[in-house]
């Protein structure tokens, strides 16, 4: 029995790789999209410019499109022969298609609407009067943002980060369409589970990885709750 249990929990090298890859893809995707998410959230919350609705629509598109469609659009744009992909390859030697970097891009795009939405709401909740007061005390707009707006919107930023991270961990459709399912390169946790379900006798492996996915997501959620509570205590009016 003990032997059975321990053998159930002994992960194969391939499974470890899938977990490590998922974490790497999700962390890179989340951290790189954070500054862009803050910028776009700020523009949508405060900006008054032509094409704002268009930007808003574009950001939210991955939320309403089938993930496969988003993945296919990424493939067209960022594939080796795609307009953006070809440029990135020639200019920086950066290849996205069928690489883990592409998986990170797909995860970032899919999580982006969730992150922006959370950040935008938190910026809208910041009292403009406080920013005005900071200005009269001599702070330039950049410093007002860094010392007043950003600290006050921090709970929303953290929530956005966690949502995007969770989305990245679970992303499947766009990833598999854009970068396929290559073990060791683009086979993330979700893709590995999918692969297990497609082969006879893969049930144990699928269940193992499923439990690990649940544990990782729960940990992230709890960590964010804790962090948000700590920050809220500092910021609370």
């Amino acid at each position: 029995m003990v032997c059975l249990v321990s053998s159930f929990w002994s992960l194969s090298a391939e499974e470890w790789t899938a977990i490590a890859l998922s974490l790497r893809v999700s962390i890179v995707a989340t951290l790189l999209s954070l500054p862009v998410g803050i910028l776009v959230g700020y523009l949508l919350a405060r900006g008054r410019f032509w094409g704002k609705s268009l930007l808003n629509g574009l950001v939210h598109l991955p939320l309403i499109l089938p993930p496969v469609v988003t993945g296919y659009i990424l493939l067209i744009l960022f594939g080796r022969r795609g307009p953006v992909g070809a440029f990135l390859d020639q200019a920086f030697g950066l290849v996205l298609s069928f690489r883990w970097t592409g998986a990170a891009l797909a995860a970032a795009v899919m999580g982006f609407p969730l992150m922006v939405r959370s950040i935008r709401l938190s910026i809208e909740a910041v009292d403009v009067k406080l920013e005005e007061a900071a200005g009269t005390l001599g702070a330039s707009p950049v410093f007002v943002f860094l010392t007043v707006t950003l600290p006050l919107m921090l709970p929303g930023v953290i929530a956005g980060l966690i949502l995007a991270f969770a989305k990245a961990m679970g992303e499947f459709g766009a990833t598999i369409t854009f970068v396929s399912n290559i073990p060791g390169e683009t086979q993330t946790l979700s893709a590995a589970i999918y692969t297990f379900t497609q082969v006879p006798g893969g049930d144990a492996g699928a269940l193992r990885l499923t439990l690990i996915a649940v544990a990782l997501s729960m940990t992230a959620l709890l960590a964010s709750e804790l962090l948000a509570r700590l920050v809220a205590k500092r910021v609370a009016a």
Binding site: D127, K129, E132, A133, T136, A139, P141, V148, P151, R234
Partner: peptide, 18 residues
């Protein structure tokens, strides 16, 4: 405003809560 160096006291205190 931030280069005028005028102290401004508003109707509400507008203290930074954080």
């Amino acid at each position: 405003a931030h280069r005028r160096r005028f102290g401004y006291v508003f109707q509400e205190p507008r203290l930074f809560p954080h």
